[in-house]
Write a protein that binds this DNA or RNA. Sequence first.
DNA 1: ATGGCGAATGTAAGCGCTTGCAGTACCCTG
DNA 2: CAGGGTACTGCAAGCGCTTACATTCGCCAT
Lengths: 339, 339
Amino acid sequence: MVSIDEVAREAGVSTATVSRALSGRGNVSEPTRARVEAAAKSLGYVVSASASSLASGRTRNIGVLVPFLDRWFFSTVLSGTATALQRLGYDITLYQLTADPNQRREIFDTFLRRQRVDGVIAISIELGEEETERLVELDLPVIAIGGPNPRLTTLTVDDVAIARLATEHLIALGHRAIAHIGASPEYDLDFHIPTHRRRGFEQALADAGIPARPELYEPADFTIEGGFRAAKQLLGRPGANPSAIVAASDEMAIGAILAARELGYRVPEDLSVAGIDGHELGAFFRLTTVDQFPLRQGERAAGAILAELDSPAAGVRQARADLPFELIVRGSTARLPSP
Amino acid sequence: MVSIDEVAREAGVSTATVSRALSGRGNVSEPTRARVEAAAKSLGYVVSASASSLASGRTRNIGVLVPFLDRWFFSTVLSGTATALQRLGYDITLYQLTADPNQRREIFDTFLRRQRVDGVIAISIELGEEETERLVELDLPVIAIGGPNPRLTTLTVDDVAIARLATEHLIALGHRAIAHIGASPEYDLDFHIPTHRRRGFEQALADAGIPARPELYEPADFTIEGGFRAAKQLLGRPGANPSAIVAASDEMAIGAILAARELGYRVPEDLSVAGIDGHELGAFFRLTTVDQFPLRQGERAAGAILAELDSPAAGVRQARADLPFELIVRGSTARLPSP
DNA sequence: ATGGCGAATGTAAGCGCTTGCAGTACCCTG
DNA sequence: CAGGGTACTGCAAGCGCTTACATTCGCCAT
């Protein structure tokens, strides 16, 4: 491995100058800089990350925590984060958190404390009291996506408003018998997203003066299959007879569309279905949805952490539910035919 | 930050002993080890990654290269890798490669050469000549998944055999008019997977004495939507009239099932459909497929890299197509009704 | 008894950088 | 022309560990 000394010798300067020339910190005359750069290139010199980190305290590395790697939403957010961070020359160290308390403890107590990262992004992680504490103790910039956490800077989307938007769309189309596929309470771990969305759904109905009908609610597990089963329940339930369904996720909405088709309903003529999330499969199924732009969420988290890195405490701890979302009307919803 | 000196003082030993006690390298008497451990725990000491790496040359960090983060196959393999690596105390540094040559060059020329990783896992990356060269030059253990690369240790699945297995299943069920959804040539970048699968399909037909029929082939782009369109072509083509379809991916197979339903075919009564990959949605669509266990592929890569780390060159460069795969018969294929 | 050996521990020399401090040369002001 | 900057560069002290080598000590074989 080529070291900085060889570059210094080759360029006829001290190692200090090489360091300054290559890192851009401190003043170096243009000709010297060029000479150093040429020497570095010709020798194939690349600074040693550990030596540089040890001496400077900077790592150019961000730790990213995700609960799942192989689920669409999380991998999409991660993708956005990774793209943005890489573009700016940052490495990312990935930690996939499981439910195993030992594994989690190891990550919070050891991995994150090895001075290997300059900051941490937690993507939709339900953090325990202690875990939040550990994160704060790190004394590093931390950005959390999802689930307002009063002790951390958090990027959150207003899930109540999202669900209300989807529901209002259906109401505006003349629907009144609107069903909702949410989550069973035990699924409501992650930031109470299902609960918030259900509340948004109910608010929209209430605002429109439509009485809530318990038989028009059905829980599922946020998967296509779950949505499929829930929709079958809903559509088969005597007296329910919904003309529209708001699902708390696109995957469940797709399941609902599939279920409806199987039962002989035409979507959207006989049944309107709206989802939430902006899933990649939405376009194919012509699904009307409220997109929350997960890719951009990831990019935004990257931007936020870098901003804090640049000017610490610039982004004073905040927890604003201000991530953007937007109703995307496609072909799965239609005006209720006047009877 | 607590340093090793404080632990040494607290335990009443030298820093050398602390290092040895905590890392497990070298001899330390049991009582001393316990004392050191207690001191470290009470002070909340965690070794500094950069200092340790600089001094020892080991980083306990594996670089992982992926082409996409937000596609099912890759994120699933990555998940397997991450789980296995984390369990063994390794960090993973993630690099999402794009097609942008500048970005790729930066990763190969700079990021990977900063001595930040002990080894590299390349997940289904189509590596250029030069990129392979850079990887070899790193002089680190490198494991590639997919696409036999004679210069690297590669984990590969036999795509010809996989496709043959799927096709033979259909032939065994009595089908003769079997269509294939593959990829258009320009999509055949990544290790020629589509080509191999098409070849396997054709071999199976040939072995069974079934003549190839060009009108029973249709290219697509490996997505559900692509499979949907391709199947519509196939099923609408005059004179084609297939009784079964082998799709080169599960996503395309799912698209084909959806297309068939839309055209009024019952699956599997009127049309059998088989896929390849083992996609998570396969169960829901009752898709018969050849599973290639991507999660396990990821774990296996992790195991392989650690094996090489333990005993360099133990895993002499090899490129065996020996990853396991298995026919999973579900409900999308059935015996051809005797006419 | 004695030499030899291995286990346990300490000493101290790095690992390859970054950066505070100091020195030099040059330029501008008054 | 002196005084004071400013820009550039070098010197050298770390950053917080690991580990080769040295030292000590108890124990066993001779």
